[in-house]
């Protein structure tokens, strides 16, 4: 063996030793200094509008927050619109992206109203409401607590007599800042 080969072998051994030692060090450190738990889901949940509408494909805002925390895209919340996407992008250090039109478009927030003359008191909407904003009992007329209604429209489908309608809120609301749907289409 010539000198250069020895040099090379010495170097490789030194480097291997260095990396092995480093690897072992990191391994022990990661064992000794383990930390668990992450408050991320709660932070994500705080950015969501809490309509519990399920338009994102999850049964409520918290489940979507959990999905985002494990990597789902942040643009599936139409009621939150641009504000929510920007807040999420900010929180997660991502670039804001336009709303995914497949999940719907941002509209002015609404409230459900039950036409009390038509309602037959079947309680199906009460079961559907994610925030318990509908009052009533079997065979008795139902009514929506407008102040608690998130306008999620989940009560519309179950109603057998179509007596529920979504109407614009009677109190002032913020201007919506939806991402332009044309932009979504243009970007495919």
């Amino acid at each position: 063996m010539n000198e250069i080969t020895i040099d090379i072998i010495a170097g490789v051994i030194a480097l291997t030793a260095l990396t092995t030692a480093g690897g072992l060090l990191l391994q022990t450190l990661s064992r000794r200094f383990r930390v668990d738990g992450s408050p991320l889901v709660a932070q994500i949940d705080a950015c969501l509008p809490q309509t519990q509408c399920g338009q994102c494909g999850h049964p409520g805002c918290r489940p979507y927050a959990e999905a985002i925390a494990s990597g789902e895209s942040i643009n599936k919340c139409p009621p939150g619109g641009r504000d929510t996407i920007e807040a999420l992008a900010d929180l997660l250090g991502k670039e804001p992206i336009p709303l995914d039109a497949a999940h719907g478009i941002t509209e002015l927030p609404k409230v459900a109203v039950i036409d009390e003359t038509v309602c037959i008191g079947c309680t199906k909407c009460i079961v559907a409401c994610p925030v318990d904003a509908i009052l009533g009992a079997a065979k008795l007329m139902h009514t929506v607590i407008a102040d608690e209604c998130t306008g999620c429209d989940l009560c519309l489908a179950p109603c057998p007599v179509d007596c529920i309608a979504l109407v614009p809120r009677s109190w002032p609301t913020r201007d919506i800042k939806s991402t332009d749907s044309r932009e979504v289409i243009a970007r495919g």
């Binding site: 010495a10 170097g11 030194a14 480097l15 480093g22 060090l25 450190l29 990661s30």
Partner: peptide, 24 residues
Amino acid sequence: LDAVWLRTLAFIVAIAITVQSTEL
């Protein structure tokens, strides 16, 4: 060890180890 030709590699490894352990 007369292995200065390994400097870049060695430094990268050293930096990675230092940073990671500092973090932990």
